[in-house]
């Protein structure tokens, strides 16, 4: 696929359920081969967006394109979807469930079996393939669901909270798989509340709140934009006396200082000099995504 054709493109999409507007005037693009972060608080509309892309819901207005055109029935086989609400046939055996779900993506039975076994082995689940799903722990059920999503080898992956219920070892394994899939050209939309993982995996993000877009674009750019008012300072000054500071909290490297809206870092530096404080360090901070998330939601 050419870089100029987005893998997913939403333009002015609106979706309401009876009188409740879930998505309002939303537009974004996801490029082929990128890991795209979809952020937002609970109930913001992330799952609705994923369902719209998956053609489970249809927009009331606006347009959604995948692979450079409107969604076709056969596209379901080319998009893998890991929903937030996990769903498996709990009374059936692990391998049978995965094979069935992979075949529903249009993969023939022998290939589905090969892929299933390969992924079970990859995620260290081969020994439970004959177990019933209900016999597995929550984390292992999550792995089964993840395997069922990736084993069909879809070109686009929509992952809604893929790390929930996983221990750190498995989180690391999932991250590695996701990075490998992206490196092999797969497009990945990652919806999660774990901001540190978004920071480490995604280059671009889209944030939605109450159905509306609040952030969209390059993650570093967003962080730079939101860091103009944050400074890390290591000194012996009493920050509560400073007229430019809105909030100050200690962190490992010193004190993270959030400046008031009309204040600038140079004014803080001037104040420190004026106070004859001993300044060991003074640098503009890169605001963590989590702080940006909270600041955006609670302005």
């Amino acid at each position: 696929m050419s870089q100029s054709v987005p893998a997913i493109a939403l333009r002015s999409v609106r979706k309401a359920f009876h009188t409740v507007v879930a998505i309002e005037d939303t537009s974004f693009e996801v490029q082929p081969g990128e890991i795209f972060g979809l952020l937002g608080p609970n109930g913001a509309g992330k799952t609705t967006l994923l369902r719209l892309i998956m053609d489970i819901f249809r927009p009331d207005s606006g347009s959604i394109q995948v692979f450079g055109r409107h969604f076709l029935r056969r596209d379901k086989g080319r998009i893998g979807y890991l929903p937030e609400e996990r769903g498996l046939y709990v009374r059936q055996k692990v391998q049978a469930v995965i094979e069935y779900l992979v075949q529903l993506k249009g993969v023939r039975q022998p290939q589905a079996r090969m892929n299933t076994l390969r992924w079970l082995e990859r995620l260290d689940m081969l020994d439970v393939r004959e177990h019933r799903v209900q016999e597995l722990s929550k984390g292992n059920q999550q792995k089964v669901q993840f395997i069922a999503t990736v084993a069909a080898e879809p070109e686009i992956l929509l992952l809604d909270e893929p790390f929930s219920g996983l221990d750190p070892v498995n989180v690391r394994a999932f991250i590695q798989v996701i990075q490998e899939l992206a490196a092999s050209g797969r497009t990945i939309v990652l919806s999660t509340h774990q901001m540190n993982l978004v920071e480490s995996l995604c280059r671009r993000v889209f944030m939605i709140h109450r159905g509306c877009q609040v952030l969209y674009g390059d993650l570093e750019q967003i962080q730079r934009t939101h860091s103009e008012k944050a400074v890390v300072v290591r000194s012996n000054a009493n920050y509560s006396d400073c007229p430019f500071i809105a909030h100050a909290t200690g962190n490992g490297r010193g004190t993270l200082v959030l400046l008031k809206n009309d204040a600038q870092p140079r004014e803080l530096l001037a104040w420190l000099v004026e106070m004859q404080a001993e300044v060991e360090a003074f640098e503009c901070a890169k605001t963590p995504l989590e702080d940006i998330f909270i600041n955006v939601l609670q302005p």
Binding site: I56, K76, Y81, P83, L88, L101
Partner: peptide
């Protein structure tokens, strides 16, 4: 049952 155990969304993501 498929609705109750939430498989329906996974299925629906694959078939009409």
């Amino acid at each position: 049952e498929e609705k109750q155990n939430r498989v329906i969304e996974v299925i629906w993501a694959s078939v009409d």
